[in-house]
Design a protein around this nucleic acid. Structure first.
Lengths: 350, 350
DNA sequence: AGTTTTCATGTAAACGCTTACAAAGACAGA
DNA sequence: TCTGTCTTTGTAAGCGTTTACATGAAAACT
């Protein structure tokens, strides 16, 4: 364990060189004689020297940390992404500074301002609320950052996301092919690009299969579990209620399952339920939830790699990567009851 | 959004004072005339000034950040704790620097060394692996830290945990009162204090109810889901297999449930399953898992508060807080089959 | 051998702030 | 009005680094 306060000056004294040389060793400067380097390294070892991060970054170097801004920590969703980020960062010996905005847009801009002001070398923004407020400044100042899971509505900027539209399309199509015609949809927070895309994917699937879109079957939620519960209740109350409910994320799907059960209906026999995300719980819930898998951990990894690239070559071309989603079929959906022929037909028509 | 680089000198110029006065305003020094303070505040506002953290801490102040060391991010377990920590920290406008040791003891000591070397003002250590390596140094240097969920086997140090012994005792007793006599137990990583305590609680309950302890009913796991699976399989294979399985945490309990189902047995009718932690999934799994609730989020909060106290009054008395666990009865346990009378008797005998 | 080039090393200034100390006002008591 | 005290403000040094520049020694030329 390191001693109270060992500075490069101490190391320099011990190694019999000037502190400048020590600094060069730390920074892997080529202009150090191998023998000298060795001597310095030994001194550092013996003294248990650890370079002071604050001083390094103040003096113009890098901070060795990247900032991560997330809306909250409530669901497994963010956790998965963080795992991916953490895995990549650990490889690079970079620190992770975590900020939770608690879904407050104003805090978001605030944090970004603070962080970009020297706390970190780069920024990872998960599910940003209103990135428009700061991406401009960030880009202009050439500060490296990557958006995760956000469809930039405006400017081009580095981002990684999933094929939300396609995923929702696949999900809805799966239900359609199972013979469902009345498919309830519970949206996410509609100010988020991903939520919009999922709704669009759902609508597109209906259109493709010539099933009319009705607003009464769409309930606007906010990605939280209670919305799934109340949403499902509302959907079950419409005249000619849906035979399937597609929720924009897994936790809302689970909320919906609770509501359906509370009404005394069976899943999937009476109502099919389909989610989005494939969080760990999706597999454990009973019946196991059929859902659209988002490669969350991978999104975290890829975003981090992009950021690291940006850190090395700040001028490299901005890009937006969309990772493919995947339909995971489990036990929460089955063909529409008493209409297997229908389902079969639907699956192979247009 | 803040401009490129605004320093206290800029603010001072704008406000017509010296930079020293600006610094005083930042640090809420009493020796500033109200009018002057106001002027400085305005200048700061107009310039969008944000004090540079690195510089502040370098110059002797606090870093305004606390470090959090966790073993991993895999299970919801840590996530819950982090939520509590984050909630408290946000209130204090402190930053969170997150480190993942990936369950490597050596990394742990390493990180602690680095962090204590000026990166952060205090340290929160979740499920520390071998704290003995560094608590000595930390204490000696009077560096504020709090251990979360670790039974300090050795020295006294600030820590918060749960009543693991009592929790396991309650759990085992619950099963005993339901009439179970052959109760399988799957341990956690036995190098962790909490795992030891849980085993001890289980044994104590057996003893209290005059049920013999047999080693063949104890399977040593490591807190990961696969251990639950293989553990349950092993336990079902012993002659006169258990009628109930108590796993040292929920994810292992879920692994056990999978194994039991795979054997074609019903839960809870054929085998009762009981977990520990009450992670969010416990409620969602079917049958819903009866478990011992650990107040994880609260543990995070309490630990953070302790750390904040320590930060303010470094000399305050060390303390170890144990938060009570609670038996949460759900659907994964029922009286031992065909022996309700037994169960009833057991419940009210010594 | 003398001169230039190269490379390793030392030195000083700067990064943006805190803080002890000095200086200058303000104000009271005599 | 003068002295002493208290309060506000300015100033300089220093926190532990990096980095541009200067220096000196060794190596490579002629």
């Amino acid at each position: 364990m390191t001693n109270q306060k060992t500075t490069i000056v101490d190391v320099a004294a011990k190694a019999g060189v000037s502190f400048g040389t020590v600094s060069r060793v730390i920074n892997n400067d080529v202009h150090v004689r191998p023998a000298t380097r060795e001597r310095v390294l030994q001194a550092m070892e013996q003294l248990g020297f650890v370079a002071n991060r604050q001083a390094r970054s103040l003096a113009g170097g890098k901070t060795g940390a990247i900032g991560l801004l997330v809306p909250d920590l409530g669901t497994g969703y963010i956790g998965e992404i963080i795992r991916g980020i953490d895995a990549e960062l650990t490889l690079q010996e970079l620190d992770l500074i975590l900020y939770t905005t608690h879904r407050t847009a104003s805090k978001e801009a605030n944090y970004v301002a603070n962080l970009a002001q020297g706390m970190v070398d780069g920024l990872l923004l998960v599910l940003p609320r209103n990135p428009a407020d700061y991406v401009g400044t960030l880009t202009q100042r050439n500060f490296p950052f990557v958006l995760i899971d956000h469809q930039g509505t405006g400017k081009e900027c580095p981002a990684v996301g999933a094929t939300n539209w396609q995923g929702a399309f696949d999900a809805a199509e799966h239900l359609l092919k199972l013979g469902h015609r009345r498919i309830g949809f519970i949206t996410g927070s509609m100010d988020l690009g991903c939520a919009q895309d999922r709704l669009a994917g759902y609508r597109a699937a209906l259109r493709t299969h010539h099933v009319p879109y009705t607003e009464e079957l769409v309930y606007e939620g906010t990605f939280f579990q209670p919305d799934g519960f109340t949403g499902a209740l509302a959907l079950l109350d419409v005249p000619d209620p849906p035979t399937a409910i597609f929720a924009s994320n897994d936790v809302m799907a689970m909320g919906a399952m609770d509501a359906i059960r509370q009404r005394g209906l069976r899943i999937p026999d009476d109502i099919a339920v389909l989610g989005f995300d494939d969080i760990p719980q999706a597999e454990m819930v009973r019946p196991a939830l059929t859902t659209i898998q988002q490669p969350l951990e991978k999104m975290g990894r890829v975003a981090t790699q992009m950021l690291l690239d940006l850190l090395e070559a700040p001028e490299s071309k901005i890009q937006r990567i969309e990772l493919p989603t995947k339909l995971i079929i489990r036990d929460s959906c089955c063909p529409r009851q008493g209409s297997y022929a229908d389902a079969h037909n639907a699956a192979y028509s247009a």
